[in-house]
Amino acid sequence: MSIPPLTLYGLKNCDTCRKALAALTTAGHDVAFVDIRAEADLPARVPAWLKAVGAEKLVNRRSTTWRGLTTAQQAGALGDGAAALLIANPALIKRPVIDTGADILVGWDKGTEQALKA
């Protein structure tokens, strides 16, 4: 059985993205890396990601970009304004976003690693 190809959306200078990419490659996955600032079609991707995982999971509330937002922008980021804000501020997207072809996984933790081993 072959391992399906994955697409990892992230930032080239993100330590978590580099760690995830290295772990996935070591595990035998064929991984395509897409830089969310330079290469990703965010207007097409972000709404689909939000539908798949929700704003609570997709918005990176630990980022410096998040801390620079007004209270109103932060409230909108977790509601109806999430897509527009994430498209305008790619660094607000929690990374990495991994598209397995069947699922969208966000972040790099034990749960994501286990989901990719199944």
Rank of each mutant, 00 (worst) to 15 (best):
M1D: 05
M1L: 12
P4H: 10
P5T: 06
P5A: 15
P5C: 07
P5L: 13
L6G: 07
L8H: 04
Y9E: 07
Y9Q: 12
G10Q: 07
G10C: 12
N13R: 15
C14K: 07
D15Y: 07
C17E: 02
C17A: 15
R18G: 12
R18N: 12
K19Q: 14
K19F: 01
A20H: 03
A20Q: 08
A20Y: 02
L21N: 10
L21W: 09
L24I: 04
T25N: 08
G28F: 04
G28V: 10
D30L: 14
V31N: 08
A32D: 11
V34F: 05
D35T: 01
R37Y: 05
A38W: 05
A38R: 15
E39C: 06
E39P: 02
A40K: 11
D41H: 13
D41G: 09
L42F: 12
R45C: 03
V46M: 03
W49A: 00
L50E: 03
L50P: 04
K51A: 15
V53N: 04
V53M: 08
A55W: 00
K57S: 00
L58A: 11
V59M: 00
V59C: 00
V59E: 00
N60P: 10
R62C: 09
S63Q: 09
S63R: 08
T65Y: 09
W66K: 03
G68D: 14
T70H: 06
T71P: 12
T71S: 13
A72S: 12
Q73L: 06
Q73I: 08
G76T: 01
G76E: 15
L78D: 00
L78V: 07
G79N: 08
G79V: 14
D80S: 13
G81K: 13
A83V: 07
L85F: 04
L86D: 02
L86C: 07
L86F: 05
I87W: 07
I87H: 10
A88S: 14
A88W: 05
N89P: 01
P90K: 10
P90D: 15
A91G: 06
A91M: 12
A91K: 08
L92V: 04
L92C: 02
I93L: 12
R95S: 05
R95K: 15
V97L: 13
I98P: 02
I98A: 09
I98N: 03
D99I: 01
T100S: 11
T100H: 05
T100Q: 11
G101C: 06
G101S: 06
A102S: 14
A102Y: 01
A102F: 06
I104S: 01
V106I: 11
D109E: 12
T112A: 07
Q114S: 14
Q114D: 15
Q114N: 14
L116M: 10
L116H: 11
